[in-house]
Design a protein around this nucleic acid. Structure first.
Lengths: 344, 344
DNA sequence: ATGAAAGCGCTAACAC
DNA sequence: GTGTTAGCGCTTTCAT
């Protein structure tokens, strides 16, 4: 049987309230008392019970990460691995641990009719002190409503709309796409193909805007031919690559809105007998695990997911004391690998 | 303010104990009472508080997954993505959700001097109903000791030693390596290179044994030249590939003990101007995300991590009622992609 | 088959 | 500064 606060109080010869005070770093505690309690805690190897603390009205010391069920299932089924979740959790875990918090991962079915019920019961039974909302879900109005209604602090990662709601951590997709486009132009490319993501995603929009803005800044005009819409899958990238590379005047470089599609483009080039990066430069976005070891290794934009999660977690932990609407922009990194070279 | 058990009892006109009975599906409850309570629960949208339940002595409805801090950090830093964690969590989450449980992820520093203290306080403050031990850690005797001492049910994933301790879910690495080797021999290969993992890992050992056993079964003898030791990294695979491919009589196929090393071998072949799979067949092990989109796509062994985690979670949930020493073997899948072809 | 009462281990008001 | 006393919302005895 583990020690309780009564055991500690008895051993230290003080009241349980004093023990509680020391544990929670409350003011008005004499140094002598502090020392006595500290000693008792250590000698008993005492650890307060989380459930008792939570029940008594304090915080739960729990941070919940809401993860999209469909998306995760899809990654799992397809074998198209994605380490987004791992990176996210790592960032969150490190901060949680520092603060004595714990991370709970919850699968959430966005769009399911039972969503509201499930979320409510989750929040009520667990009472997490904060919630981390990941990208596909950070924009779901139902989720935001419930979180606001229950007064649960939350941080949205990479949110696209309703930017006034809750706290946010995000990356500048538009600027990143501009930088990447500049990079290609800087290498000497003038005919730049672009494989966009589905128009529904705001990130797709932003990346495309960045591409177009960079072209414009260099006095280039995006030809309609040069832009093909994909759906973020390898297959769609391959198809887009085929159509771009078989144009009468094919581009000398293709910028795909994510890595899976960029790998599809590389695959199309190989199938058409076009060498990369010799005959065609290709770059992606995200820096997924596959980007590093593809042939050739892929130039891409690395989204610092762990850093974003860490920043978000810190926001959440601060929000417990002083609720706010903090917003933080995190820097991306342009990873220059072998898949982009000057045109021949 | 959410409804409590008292609200439900009052509305249903029964005692709180009766509500509790219905909630926990205890025997000796009349249908009438059951119905009344059910109705009250629904009309109040009542959700029992997890902390109150835990505190009162019931289970915590929490499953904790212990994840190695160093390994995760290393994956994060290196950018060598790995979706092991995501797959693991997905499998565990699906089962947890079915049973009304929640998944907690905890970073654990194997080997740290504070390990014992941290683990103990974790178990005592959280009181998880079960713990999922992931591979690098599933063999740590300190961890096993503490878990056994505190009476926490646990399942070890891919454990290598002390096989009598706790419950286990594993994959037959040796047999999988045999199958893969058979596959290569079946294609017509007779000169089979092998890139092993570090000898310290039992999985390395098992894979190598499988390779040698399959050769022997076909009357082939592994030449010492054909076996090169790597350390599971891309770089070591590349080096091993170079040395194997520049032998006076190079192998016609190379079996690397993991995908990162197999990709390294492919890279070495490309650098030497040897076509794959035309000039050299290559296969790996693990089916990491990169295997699918490499050039050529990699033949490999897929470890069903999510299924293993799901099986482990089910064991844990059952163990709450009837502790046991369940052991389950999960089937792997040989994924035949383009990187292995008959020799020319 | 149902209920009353006593905790579980802590924090929060309120005394002193 | 420090201690006393109530709860927090459940599950467990133990009655009935």
């Amino acid at each position: 049987m583990p020690a309780t606060i009564y055991d500690v109080a008895a051993l230290a010869g003080v009241s349980i309230k004093s023990v509680s005070r020391v544990l929670n770093r409350e003011p008005n505690v004499s140094a002598a008392l502090q020392a006595k309690v500290q000693a008792a805690v250590e000698s008993l190897d005492y650890q307060p019970s989380l459930s008792a603390r939570t029940l008594a009205g304090a915080s739960s010391y729990l941070i919940a990460a809401f993860v999209d069920a469909d998306l995760t299932l899809e990654h799992w089924r397809s074998g198209r691995g994605n380490d987004y979740l791992s990176r996210l959790e790592y960032g969150a875990l490190v901060e949680c641990r520092k603060a004595g918090y714990h991370l709970l991962v919850e699968l959430v079915d966005y769009g399911a009719p039972s969503l509201e019920t499930r979320l409510l019961s989750l929040l009520r039974s667990l009472r997490p002190d904060g919630v981390l909302l990941t990208p596909p879900n950070a924009d779901d109005p139902t989720v935001l409503d419930i979180l606001e209604r229950t007064g649960t602090p939350f941080v949205r990662l990479g949110a696209d709309r309703d930017l006034g709601r809750g706290m946010r951590v995000f990356m500048d997709d538009r600027q990143a796409a501009m930088d990447m486009t500049d990079h290609l132009i800087g290498l000497g490319h003038r005919r730049l193909g672009f494989v966009s993501g589905p128009a529904a995603y705001a990130a797709s929009q932003a990346r495309r805007e960045g591409y177009e803005a960079a072209l414009a800044a260099h006095g280039l005009i995006a030809q309609p031919d040069w832009i093909v819409e994909g759906d973020f899958t390898f297959a769609s990238g391959r198809k887009a690559g085929e159509s771009l590379l078989t144009l009468a005047q094919p581009p000398s470089a293709i910028f795909a809105s994510n890595d899976d599609m960029a790998l599809g483009v590389l695959n199309a080039a190989a199938a058409l007998g076009i060498a990369a990066p010799g005959g065609i430069s290709v770059c992606g976005f995200d820096d997924t695990p596959s980007a590093m070891f593809s042939t050739p290794p892929l130039t891409t934009v690395r989204q610092p997911v762990a850093e974003m999660a860490a920043a978000a977690t810190r926001m959440l932990l601060n929000a417990t004391r002083s609720p706010g609407h903090a917003v933080e922009k995190i820097d991306y990194v342009l990873v220059d690998r072998a898949s982009t070279q000057p045109p021949r």
